[in-house]
Every structure is written in C-alpha cells, then in structure tokens.
Design a protein around this nucleic acid. Structure first.
Lengths: 197, 197
DNA sequence: GCATGTGAATTACTTCACAGCT
DNA sequence: AGCTGTGAAGTAATTCACATGC
C-alpha cells in the first residue's frame, strides 16, 4: 500500500493533488490505508489507455528514428512498431529494430493494411506536413512529431510535438532570469514565474 | 506589422492571451497598428535569453546524441555545443557534428574549462543521474534530459525532461477516450478533459 | 476606425479541511 | 490513529470589454 502523501513526495506535488487527480477517474484507495500499489498501477494503465496495445508507424529512419527504435521502453509500455518508412533509397531495406525500412511511397497501403493507429514523425522538417497528411489519410488517430515544425491536423487527430530547440529555449529563459546579466538593468516585472520543469 | 489577432490565429489561442502574455514583459505594440514583426522577434529573443549564446555539453554519443548534433537548429538559435562525452571507448575519438567525442571521465575538467552552462543527457537511463551530478558539480545551470528517468537536481538548477514514452502515453490517453471501446461500458466521469496538444 | 494594454469578470486549478471509513 | 474522497475556500490563469492612443 502507498499513501497519497508518499506518492506526492515522490513527484514533488501535494497529497491533495494526488487524491483529486485520481478522483477524476474513480475511487481507487481505501480510507485509513491508502492505495494498493499493484491495483493502482492497473487502474492508471487503464485510464491512460495502456490496457491494450497500440499499433505505431515510424516515418523517418535517420538518427531520431533509430533512437526511437532502439528504445525498448515502447513495446514494454504497450506500443508495437508495425512499420518503419523512409524516402531515402539508401535506407530502404535496412533493418531498424525488428522492422525493415519500407519506401514511404508504400505508406498509404501499408498503414491501412497494418491498421496503424499512431504515427511518429522523425523526418526532416520539410517532409513533416506531407507525411502527416499521408498518416491522417491512412486513418491514424494520433501523431507524435519530432520534426521542429508546426503541423496541422484535423480536430479529430491528437497531436503532440517534441521540439528540442523549444526545450533549450525554455532552459535559456530559466537561466537568463536565474543568473541575470551583471549590468545595471532593473529587475523584471511582476508575474515572471519560474520556467523550472 | 502583425496584430494580436493574427498571432493568435496562428497559434490557436485567443488574442487577449497574446496581449496579456506579452504585457508581462513590456509594451511592444502600437495601438491601432499592432506589433512590428522584426522588433517583436528581437524582444522575444531577449525575453527568452536568446540575445546571447549558450555553451552546451552533450553527454552520450548514441543515437540520441547523434540526432542532437545533426540538428543544425541549435547553433542557429544560439546554442553552441562545446563538448560531447561518452563512456564507450568505441565512441571516444569519433567526430560528431563539429566535435570529437571525449571520455566522460574528463567531463569535470573539460566542462569547467569550457564554462559549460547547459548539459544535455543523452545516455542510457542508468547513467543519467551520475552524469547529472557531474554536470551540476561542474557548475551547469540547466539540464535537458532525454533519458527516461526521473532526475534529482538542486533547486538552483533548471531541469527539463523529454520522455518519449510519456508522450506516447499522452497520445494513448487522448485516443482511448476519443475512440472508446465499443463494449457496453458506461461513459467516463465529469471533468475528463481532452489531452489534445 | 483599428488595435493595444489592462482592470474586472470569469473560468480553471490547487489547497484546505473534515466527514467518513479502516 | 491514519488516510481517502470531496465540498468549500483560496489562487491562478484566461477572457471580457473598454479607455487610450494611433
């Protein structure tokens, strides 16, 4: 068993936050005792939609694609990479993880046949929107974008973007105010909150 | 010139949000006209701390490290990778981007000498905390973590973590509720908001 | 007329604090 | 006694709406 207080300490939040958040989805604890860890794990996986497995296609077999395929955490968490695509003939046919890289031209047919539900964009920025459109047309419900580019998707498609430059800019912001330049410039305005993670 | 309304449309937020956010840092627009794009760009770069350059060290010369070094956006945005480290002798000495990979054993000395301000963790999870401690000891003010692991840093060090598994879980959550299973299970509780990006 | 900048109103989120159960 | 689940209270973020200036 674990209490909301201990969970909160682990995550750096308050115990009330833990209880309120969980209460959005049900009552998983027992008064006086706390939460059964094994059961809570199952419940949270259910909430996150991880009780089932998801079929993922990775587009782009460069460094980012290779890094993704090398990461064993995916299948462990319930994500099966069922296809990998690239446009470069030099990359088509090579094995990446457990999959052989296919020509992106075959994406529409393969993605439909393999019932791909999530697409991962690991292409250069210029190809990202085009690939996104192909994935959406093939019926994916979600896209994870590693290309540093704003993507447009229909409202019914979930989109998350991981932009390394943006993360560094966030650090830059935090550092710039944590260690202000030592000239005589005045302090910053009200409301300037920390950008610490 | 550009109006807050047009900026808002581009970003999918409200115009009031654009104006309020900018007003936290100053008055950059002209009533009746909007914001001068070139000037606004300079002001935002100043706010984000991008008016200067930052000295970055990358630890881990695997796929993630290679992907980072291959990304030209860094130096363009003001981040100079001044050192790359790895523990694997097979990787030490090879060139990655413009840098030669050094032994992580030399990190304390090199990071101090090179005045590294931001450290990027691209190691396997087990090495991540150890490397973090080395970077903190060497005086970095911020850490960008790509290892799927919770890191502990002193309060004065800014930390951002990019966890690919977490991003996929977020998509899973969004998809699971967007396309609920077609058994007879009851609808979810109140307050269940979309996790769309 | 057009668009900013900002108090006021609204909405959302977090924390408090306690009834109720173990 | 210990801890959850949750209304109530408190804080923070967003949106409204308008005085102010171009």
């Amino acid at each position: 068993m674990i209490s909301s207080r201990r969970l909160a300490e682990r995550e750096g939040i308050t115990s009330a936050q833990v209880r309120k958040d969980l209460s959005c989805f049900g009552s998983f604890g027992r008064r006086g005792l706390g939460y059964d860890v094994a059961n809570l794990r199952v419940e949270i996986r259910e909430i996150l939609g991880l009780a089932r497995r998801w079929r993922v296609a990775v587009v782009g077999a460069g460094n980012v694609g290779a890094a993704l395929l090398a990461y064993r955490g995916f299948e462990k968490q319930g994500f099966d990479v069922v296809a990998v695509f690239d446009r470069d003939p030099a990359r088509i046919g090579i094995r990446l993880g457990t999959r052989v890289v296919q020509d992106v031209a075959s994406l529409p047919a393969v993605a439909a046949r393999e019932q791909v539900e999530i697409g991962v964009i690991a292409t250069p920025p210029r190809a990202a929107q085009e690939v996104t459109d192909l994935l959406v047309a093939a019926g994916v419900g979600g896209i994870l974008n590693f290309a540093p580019r704003k993507l447009f998707v229909p409202a019914h498609v979930a989109l998350r973007t991981v932009d390394m430059a943006m993360e560094l800019e966030s650090l830059s912001f935090a550092l710039a105010r944590a260690r202000p330049p030592r000239d005589g410039s005045p302090p910053r305005e009200r409301g300037a909150r920390s950008a610490r993670a």
